[in-house]
Design a binder for these strands. Structure first.
Lengths: 205, 205
DNA sequence: CCTACCGATCGGTAGG
DNA sequence: CCTACCGATCGGTAGG
């Protein structure tokens, strides 16, 4: 029981630290210092740095599910739920759920060139997230809220891109308008996907 | 003369290494080993790790300008140049200009939580890049190729988001369709921005 | 550009 | 959960 509580408090701190310094930049010594415990005492909970990284990822995933995806999934099927997921993602950056912005965007870019179990776990998390987006889009099509010719993978790709772009603009550039821009882009994109027909006019010049 | 050549060969290797392992993961010892020279010999060229990181960033910026932006800027003003910049960016990921994908996307996410000169230099690079995108959009408006009500900052944000999304899908997920999806999204977005008028129809249900 | 070295910190272990 | 320790590597320096 107490071991579990200790472990959870370690992981909460590890998630915050890693969101700022990266999953590789997370060190056992620094983490132990922050928590006022010995390095080896902390180490004993995990057995290796890789296990600590994997456990940290899992804890970050839980936080994301609780703070972002699960509440949005309570919205009614179709367009409302899809919009709720998108708005929840954008709000999630503004609410500082992780102190360094989106944990998984940062982890994705950090580990895309580092093969191993950590990279695989990050990819699995992102696969699930993109899958949830695609599923919400597919349901919205089934409900007749989106055009039949909407490609769920394509639209999910575009929405996720806007989320990553918003995170970038917010975290690195400190652009205050970033979230508003993302919201505007997402809502215009969804409006297009819900239009009954769009004439294929292009510029004539 | 010879010192300059050595320095450049160090930086070429540093750029490749950092694109895979990150600018922080880049270590002087590893880099020296790769190049078959002593750590202190390499170190003498820069004086500190931070200076090495800044020089590596500068070298990566030069490579990006030569491989991506400058060729595209040779295209005629307006829509053709804007499209060329976008296509050049997407091709740049497919051509493996950097072995780990887009150097600056990775650096942006790595350093957005680490204040200092390196982060400032990354932000300056991204500022210039977004500025170049905005300028190309503004010129396309002036030429009458894009609608008057197009917001250059908004459109540049959306295009850059799609680029980052494509990099993510390619590098982490190994999604072969990533570049096609990005191309399709970019071209549809630009087609919308170039339509003379778009009815504000939304779903009625 | 080298050898030789510094203190600090890394992940990890022994033993309790 | 601790103290005490390991070899390896970190960024950086002295001296040539």
């Amino acid at each position: 029981m107490k071991g579990d509580r200790t472990r959870q408090s370690i992981l909460d701190r590890a998630v915050d630290l890693a969101s700022l310094e990266g999953l590789q930049g997370l060190t056992i010594g620094r983490l132990a210092d922050d928590l006022g415990m010995s390095k080896s005492g902390l180490f004993a909970h995990f057995g290796s740095k890789e296990e600590l990284q994997l456990a940290t990822l899992e804890a970050a995933g839980e936080r994301f599910l609780n703070e972002v995806l699960r509440p949005a999934l309570k919205q009614p099927r179709g367009y409302p739920r899809l919009v709720a997921i998108c708005d929840a993602w954008i709000d999630y950056i503004g609410r500082d759920v992780f102190p360094g912005g989106c944990f998984f965007a940062a982890a994705s870019f950090e580990f895309d060139g580092r093969p191993g179990l950590v990279r695989d776990a990050i990819a699995a998390n992102m696969h699930d997230w993109i899958g949830a987006l695609e599923k919400a889009i597919t349901i919205a099509k089934e409900e007749g809220h989106l055009r039949d010719d909407v490609d769920p993978s394509q639209l999910a790709f575009e929405l996720n891109s806007l989320f990553f772009g918003a995170n970038f603009d917010c975290q690195l550039r400190g652009e205050r308008k970033a979230l508003d821009r993302a919201r505007r882009a997402v809502h215009e994109r969804l409006a297009i996907a819900s239009q009954p027909l769009r004439p294929a006019r292009r510029r004539t010049a």
